[in-house]
Design a protein around this nucleic acid. Structure first.
Lengths: 177, 177
DNA sequence: AATCAGACCGTATGAAACAGACGATGGGAT
DNA sequence: ATCCCATCGTCTGTTTCATACGGTCTGATT
């Protein structure tokens, strides 16, 4: 029970544990990959440090394995559920945030050669296609699972944004060639 | 002339100074707002510290004002131009990165009430509409300026992504109500 | 002229995020 | 037994981050 601010990453951990039930950091790491990690990326080391913090704040409980690897299994505490729910309920003020060095390079486009821009576009197209494939795979895999339909919603948004980006780069390539 | 890694933010500063010519941190701050800051956000304090680093590396030059506020005017050095150009030319490996707490909350949707989700959607719609208005304003303002057409390219991408996000939230609201 | 409010501009600070190397553990195959 | 490779966890120094704070200027009012 100590002080400390809850960051968005804190809520990711909290939410993940709430959603999955008892989890070890490594399990969280696997669960985060190819899902929530796509629209809230952070280094995996934080899945070991952050639960410790949340534990001190009384938002998570631990159960440590006795044998083998030292392994902490976390569960959400009642206080943790309250914190999570109130965060979910409060209005979101943060804007969608995009970071893309490809766009940056384009911004300084007058310093780049046309062929460099073209190369850029081709690379981006491949990357977006890859990600779309992953997204669509997930979508297809869970298509009939009505019980997790809500969790598929953000995936749909991610997918829409990927499509938009892909179309953009393809269009750009067409214009320039 | 010291060591140190160049981060993406370094290149933003470098690129901005190259593009604008002699600039003070505050001018950079204003220039970054509502433009490059939309797809590479960072705190303004870095516009004071980063140029110092770049100066030590010999990529920028300074000219300090003698009177009034202590104010540093930076220009790009020949070495800086080389660094910038070579960065622009090298292939981009970084993925487009999205961070959106609204999406996050949706992901943990089963813990939220339907009306909260609806409220979320409405809030997001307003925010995206605002940003679209800003983008479109910029676009309109510079529509006839062929000389900076390249710099408008990333703006177009930003706009496309905003449209996609807006459509998504509107669709979601329709489904849920 | 003196005061004052509010914008403008720059700095400081501690906490959090970051990348990624490193170390330790497990469990088969030979 | 041993070796290899995937699995799992920790550690490190640096960078980023948000935000509070302190100065500085302008110009309107008295």
């Amino acid at each position: 029970m100590s002080t400390g601010r809850l960051t968005t990453t804190s809520y990711v951990v909290l939410g993940m544990v709430a959603m999955r039930g008892p989890s070890t950091p490594y399990e969280l790491k696997r669960a985060v990959n190819h899902s929530v990690g796509y629209f809230w990326p952070f280094p995996h080391a934080q899945l070991y440090s952050e639960p410790k913090r949340l534990l001190e704040m009384g938002l998570l409980d631990v159960h440590a394995e006795e044998e083998g690897r030292r392994r902490q299994t976390y569960t959400i505490s009642p206080e943790g559920e309250v914190a999570l729910r109130s965060w979910l309920a409060e209005p979101t003020v943060e804007q969608l945030q995009i970071r893309d060095v490809a766009e940056l390079k384009l911004f300084f486009g007058e310093f780049a050669r046309a062929e460099d821009i073209l190369g850029l576009a081709r690379g981006q197209i491949v990357q977006h296609q890859d990600r779309i494939a992953v997204y669509e795979g997930m979508q297809a895999r869970f298509a009939e699972r009505d019980d997790i339909a809500d969790r598929m919603v953000p995936l749909r948004l991610g997918l829409e944004l990927e499509y938009a980006a892909l179309r953009f780069w393809q269009q750009l390539e067409k214009e320039r060639s």
